[in-house]
Design a protein around this nucleic acid. Structure first.
Length: 469
RNA sequence: GUCCCCAUCGUCUAGUCAGGUCUAGGACACCAGCCUUUCACGCUGGCGACGGGGGUUCGAAUCCCCCUGGGGACGCCA
């Protein structure tokens, strides 16, 4: 039997990273076993589901490269099917109509909590054999077994036993005719022929109910794998308010899709001591047996490090293409010229993210508007002015505009004057970049370009004049 | 309250199933040093954990029980 996994988010907000990780695990499992990975949009809650959120799901998966097979399934398109399946269950005596009102149910729940009992339905309508009548709202409830044990043989949690006595008769069809979560899931799992269900462990407690439903339908129960939740850096539950929760935010912060996958896959899963994985390696090595059972906390520093490692493997051409939108945001049009690529190579080891690369590289593309105050005060001085002048002159006549030749010119001056390399490198750096930080000064000079270099040295010297007068 | 899950450095984790090779290994972060024209990268070293208590055993991070702590579920949300 070939493997079929699925990702089943509800489109009620951002696609947060816990969900993305279960999507990743499901995707990896399917790819690992040459199976299918399906997408199902759980939009039975008409109040909360939105078109925008659905689009966010598509965009996120697309960006990460978590491609799915077949067309996505929308639960909202399958309403008739759920109703028919539920009616069939009623016919067979495995479900029943219930006319209990919401008010009664609420009262029941409050009462149970007050008595410190587990809130559950009291089976009032279970054996009444009610028929739906016009004017009386009614739900359909599943007739859950009264006793016995349900065994969940979980791929990550191991064997977990539940007593049917702990479960109650859950509503499967609401008064408005829509299916509830646990019911729709089971119907879909069956219709989509899912063989493996990998999801967050907040669903572990739903699993025995679902297993009973599978039994009621006389269908094989898929294998379940319940993955622990991801916690905030403080070790608390991820809150939408305090914590970054959307993967798309990571995209706008300049993270690489492969690095996101790498970071996420190592959160709760391991392959010995290996930290860095390409997508291909993840697929090759993924194994549910190695999924950790305890929840993990986010660590931004490690994420940055992983992203940096992937940045180091990026081809310059590719990097420039991916960085293009970030440049555009700053009004800079980059081309795929060799110069652009060299600029990336020069910044590669200095950039954790694409965004950082772009932010650190603007002076290659646009004029230096102002100097960092401290940097200018320290390096743009009357003492360094003659050095700048001499370098300018030396550079002006340089025919071979390459870092090696540039470096030689600086060395000449440095040796002649018996000064340190930094005595000249730092003032030029401030003149060219506005700050004390950049790639090697020879490389920086080469890539800023002759015209700009000469012009910026002039500006710096003017600035010194103005300052000292 | 009831039920379920979890527990190794600050964080991610190896080791736990098949107890000894673990005076607990790796990675991120942090600290110190080296490299050096700045910042990075890189290299070397350092700091740093089996939550607590009982068992079982010649021997426990590993097995059992209790406690504590964290998380989840208990909805006509998913």
């Amino acid at each position: 039997m070939s493997v079929v996994t699925r990702f089943a988010p509800s489109p009620t907000g951002k696609l947060h990273i816990g969900s993305v990780r279960t999507a990743l695990f499901s995707w990896l499992y399917a790819r690992r076993h040459q199976g299918e990975f399906l997408l199902r949009i759980e939009d039975t809650d008409r109040q909360r589901s939105t078109q925008e959120a659905t689009q966010l799901i598509f965009d996120s998966l697309n960006w990460l490269g978590l491609n799915y097979d077949r067309e996505p399934v929308f639960q909202s398109h399958r309403m008739e099917n759920y109703r028919a399946k539920a009616s069939a269950l009623v016919e067979e005596g495995k479900a029943y109509y219930c006319t209990c009102t919401k008010e009664r149910l609420d009262a029941l729940r409050e009462d149970a909590i007050a008595k410190k009992l587990k809130p559950r339905y009291d089976n009032k309508c279970r054996d009444l054999g009610l028929k739906p009548t016009a004017g009386t709202p009614c739900t359909i409830r599943f007739r859950n077994p009264i006793d016995g044990t349900v065994v969940v043989d979980d791929m990550v949690q191991g064997q977990v036993d539940y007593q049917n006595a702990e479960l109650d008769d859950l509503i499967i069809i609401r008064t408005d005719g829509t299916p509830t979560y646990n019911f729709a899931v089971v119907v879909d799992e069956i219709d989509m022929r899912c063989t493996h269900v990998i999801r967050g462990d907040d669903h572990l407690n739903n699993t025995p109910r679902q297993i009973n439903l599978f039994h009621a339908f006389g269908k094989a129960v898929p294998s379940f794998g319940h993955v622990p939740m991801i916690l905030s850096p403080e070790g608390r539950k991820l809150s939408k308010r305090e914590n970054e929760v959307s993967v798309l935010e990571w995209r706008s912060e300049g993270y690489l899709p492969e690095a996101v996958l790498n970071y996420l896959v190592r959160l709760g899963w391991s392959h010995g001591d290996q930290e860095l994985f390409s997508v291909g390696e993840m697929i090759e090595k993924f194994d549910t047996k190695k999924i950790h059972r305890s929840p993990a906390s986010l660590d931004h520093k490690k994420f940055q490090w992983i992203n940096h490692q992937h940045m180091m493997k990026l081809s310059p051409a590719n990097a420039i293409k991916m960085a293009e939108p970030f440049f555009k945001e700053r009004g800079i049009e980059v081309d795929d010229s060799q110069r652009s690529q060299q600029i990336f190579e020069a910044q590669q080891s200095r950039s954790h993210t694409l965004l950082e690369f772009v932010e650190k590289s603007v002076y290659f593309f646009s004029d230096v508007e102002e100097y960092d105050e401290k940097a200018a005060a320290k390096h743009l001085t009357l003492k360094s002015q003659p050095l700048l002048a001499e370098l300018r002159q030396s550079l002006e006549g340089l025919s071979d505009w390459k870092s090696v030749a540039i470096h030689a010119k600086i060395t000449d001056i440095v040796q002649e004057r018996e000064i340190g390399f930094g005595a000249i490198a730092q003032p030029v750096r401030v003149a060219l970049t506005g700050s004390t930080v950049s790639p090697g000064i020879d490389v920086t000079i080469e890539l800023v370009g002759r015209d700009r270099v000469l012009q910026r040295i002039d500006s710096a010297m003017d600035w010194i004049d103005k300052r000292s007068s």
